[in-house]
Design a protein around this nucleic acid. Sequence first.
DNA 1: GCATTAATTGGTC
DNA 2: GACCAATTAATGC
Length: 237
Amino acid sequence: MKELKTDCKTCTNLGCLIKKHVDSPQIEKYLERKHSIFCRSSQQFILEGSPVYGLYFIYEGVVKVMKTSSNSKEQIIRLSSNGEIVGHRGFGTDYVYNVSAVALQDAVLCNFTSSDLKEMLHEIPELMYDFMVFYADQLQRSETNAKRFGQMTVREKVMNALLLIWTKFGNTEGYMNLQLSRKEIADFAGTTEEQVIKNISALKKENLLRAQGKKLGIIDETAFSSAISQDNRILPS
DNA sequence: GCATTAATTGGTC
DNA sequence: GACCAATTAATGC
């Protein structure tokens, strides 16, 4: 990973909480302490169990946040891209990260140390408030998603995962912009690689999904969506 | 072209 | 529905 420069003033990630307060006069000195990092595809920048170094804001690229359980199984917690925060659970009382984060494509990350951010939040109440809303929202999603997860069939889990990737990262000419391996889709959906493969081929036969090599595409979003029982739909986080 | 990795399929518990 | 083994496809060198 190497250092480079990003400028919050010209950044176009309007969803970024820092960007939102870039005109606040107190923020200036902290922007100078920001580190911008270039992270090559498949590089890991947060290691589960390592000491917390701060929070990362994605300037550009897509990142997966995951948890590795004892029996070498991985669970993808979130897929994040431009403007989103990664590593926020490490902020506060925790001294080590309890997740890992890996770039899925070349990415540029903006890092603030925990202590810098702490000062920032104390100085800028509006930023503090936005952070609080962000955390509350994350907690809300995590709770409802966990509840639904247990009630879903594997087929629904897989469909949910695909639909989420489809809607969040968009598509070009009918195929998903973000392509993950079958294993990664499984880790995200909370099932096994084989189940993902079997369900994908079933969905193809049902004309809900199209595939061209590694590329996948949802044929009719409405039809696809209604094939998942209504109250089991998962919220993107 | 060969070798390693990913995707797929079928079977067992 | 997860885990395992065998086969086939895809990809890097």
